[in-house]
């Protein structure tokens, strides 16, 4: 049976834990709002880029098109870019994405493909290097620490494009948590190289203009400039979604932790009071029985 003092210490320590988790929840909530706003603000660019690619790709696919669009003609080597957080304490956020990555690697290997991994975020690298250390070809950390900048997405894209030029892989896809709400994140697997042509607005662009676009300088030159941009944009979107998801997951996890700490404090306080009352009763009995004996 724990003594009164032990219980008191326990209660105090749980109380300070609760303070920490509730503070983390507040911070995550504030960051989540900012991350969501940022994700919202980046949508027009991605939407317009998709519209342009859709109209260009139609014109260019007959002619074969650049490699980024048509692929290398093989699908033997897959590069999987896994987006995780740099820090833990965000519920199942990291473990679900890592589990999905493992499954994906095994599935691709089952089909006889070679898989390479690129880790964004420290958690993913730490968890995956035990099993797949030999196939991790690159990793970056602390991208999202001070908010997501397009420059960091651009740098990532440059690295990946360089690998593509060196023919280190045939197909590249991103694996990240898409933000749905603070409670739910959807694991998304999105192929970026070769680019999947968005099918949206196929007819709306035609009806709106009534004529085909003119291209300056020409389709191929524009596509050659546009497709690497598109890779960077998609990586940027993934970073933003993953960032918002992380903060959402952390907020939910810390909210639960705060509530659990509260429950625990209630239970411990009850035990504490019971023990205190038992002590008092025991002392009273001792006094009374002492008085009767006299």
């Amino acid at each position: 049976m724990a003594t009164l003092k032990d219980l008191k210490i326990r209660i105090n320590s749980v109380k300070s834990t609760r303070k920490i988790t509730s503070a983390m929840k507040m911070v995550a909530a504030a960051k989540l709002r900012r991350a969501q706003e940022q994700a919202e603000a980046s949508r027009p660019y991605a939407a317009r880029m998709n519209r342009m690619i859709a109209s260009l790709a139609g014109a260019a696919t007959q002619a074969g098109g650049p490699k980024l669009l048509s692929g290398t003609g093989r699908d033997d080597i897959h590069l999987l870019v896994v987006f995780t957080a740099d820090r833990g304490l965000c519920g199942g956020f990291n473990s679900t994405i890592i589990r999905a990555a493992r499954q994906r690697v095994r599935a691709l290997r089952g089909e006889g493909k070679t898989v390479k991994l690129f880790c964004v975020g420290r958690r993913g690298k730490d968890a995956l290097k035990r099993e797949f250390g030999d196939i991790i070809v690159g990793s970056v950390q602390d991208v999202t620490r001070k908010g997501v900048a397009f420059a960091s997405a651009d740098e990532l894209a440059a690295q990946i494009l360089k690998m593509f030029e060196d023919e280190d892989f045939d197909i590249c896809s991103l694996l990240f948590n898409r933000f749905q709400s603070a409670m739910t994140q959807i694991i998304t697997n999105q192929q970026i190289i070769p680019a999947s042509v968005p099918e949206v607005e196929e007819d709306s662009s035609a009806s709106e203009s009534g004529a085909l676009y003119e291209y300056e300088p020409d389709e191929e030159a524009i596509l050659a400039a546009l497709l690497p941009r598109n890779v960077a944009t998609q990586i940027f979107t993934a970073l933003l979604e993953s960032n918002a998801s992380e903060h959402g997951a952390r907020m939910t996890a810390m909210d639960n932790a705060t509530r659990n700490a509260g429950d625990m404090i209630d239970k411990l306080t009850l035990n504490y009071n019971r023990a205190r009352q038992a002590n008092i009763t025991k002392e009273l009995i001792e006094i009374i029985s002492g008085a009767e004996a006299v």
């Binding site: 342009m52 109209s55 260009l56 203009s209 004529a211 085909l212 676009y213 003119e214 291209y215 300056e216 300088p217 030159a221 524009i222 400039a225 546009l226």
Partner: peptide
């Protein structure tokens, strides 16, 4: 500022895409 020189866009310009 297009790649092949500056161009002006007025209403009812022909549809085009440029770098």
């Amino acid at each position: 500022p297009g790649t092949e020189g500056y161009f002006g866009v007025l209403p009812r310009h022909a549809p085009m895409i440029s770098t």
